[in-house]
Design a protein around this nucleic acid. Structure first.
Length: 264
DNA sequence: TTCCATGTTCCGCA
DNA sequence: TTGCGGAACATGGA
């Protein structure tokens, strides 16, 4: 799940549940999920502190620690959050658990262990060090900016949309959805898109990301015209009813409608 | 048993 | 140097 809309939903979930509570204990079930820290160091940094607020950049979620610094949560392909009673059982694959003094706990869940939990002194420095591009909803992404960035890219537009060093937050599922809604074939060469195409792509990108985030990234709530719920064998286009096709684009399975999505 | 999966990183190639 | 594709990583579900 975790692309921009999912992480935005996690942010809102964390904001609504786990802020401003004293952290009594930190449990690390599997320290392979930790990056640049240890279970002991993470505990020392968080114990007695509170999470005071969050920010998101692309697929990364940062929670400010009252004692200073940030808790970084990255969700990989299978990460999520769960807030509940400390006494109630833990969800399966809970890797890191913050237990609060009020008897609740926030669990970071990751089945495939591809995510990352870390403590940072500076979130902006992390974004720069990891070469993350503009957040996909950043107003600085204009048609002109896209045209400039895409000019040197002869590869598929889908590859460009998923390049985190260019635009942060879009992955395989949402790049397909954006390109479907924009009527663009995923293998359209980026540098072949004109200003009008890019203005349309930008508008579509923002609309799709906002709409899906507004539905907590739950595909069951997406509009009927969306492609995401049709990503399956023998899936049909929600607009023309034709058979969807799949193709590999930079190693990922891409779903698209060959009738509604044309190359430029 | 084999293949595939919503992410990132590293390597080789043009 | 930059863009791009493929493999690797870890694990479970179909």
């Amino acid at each position: 799940m975790p692309e921009l809309p999912d992480v935005e939903a996690f942010k809102e979930y964390l904001d609504a549940t786990a802020l401003h509570q004293n952290i009594a204990r930190v449990r690390v079930d599997d320290d392979r999920i930790l990056s640049g820290t240890s279970a002991q160091a993470l505990g020392r940094r968080l114990k007695g502190s509170r999470l005071q607020g969050t920010r998101r950049h692309g697929k990364h979620l940062f929670a400010r620690i009252s004692g200073g610094g940030w808790l970084l949560l990255h969700f990989g392909m299978t990460g999520e959050l769960d807030y509940g009673e400390s006494n109630g059982g833990l969800p399966e694959y809970a890797r890191v658990v913050l237990e609060f003094e009020n008897g609740r706990r926030l669990a970071y869940i990751s089945r495939r262990m591809l995510g990352e939990v870390a403590v940072l002194n500076d979130a902006d420095a992390f974004i720069a060090e990891h070469d993350l591009g503009l957040d996909a909803l950043d107003d600085a992404i204009t048609p002109e900016w896209l045209q400039q960035q895409f000019a040197s890219r002869p590869g598929p537009v889908k590859t460009a949309l998923m390049d985190q060093s260019l635009i942060a937050g879009i992955g395989n599922v949402y790049s397909d959805e954006i390109l479907f809604q924009a009527g663009l074939h995923p293998k359209t060469r980026s540098n072949r898109l004109n200003h009008e195409d890019l203005a349309h792509l930008r508008r579509t990108m923002r609309r799709v990301l906002r709409t899906t985030a507004g539905h907590q990234a739950d595909p069951a709530q997406f509009p009927g015209s969306y492609l995401t719920t049709r990503r399956e064998k023998d899936g049909r286009c929600p607009k023309c009813g034709g058979a969807l096709k799949t193709d590999k684009v930079s190693g990922r399975t891409s779903y698209f409608c060959p009738k509604c999505q044309q190359k430029r």
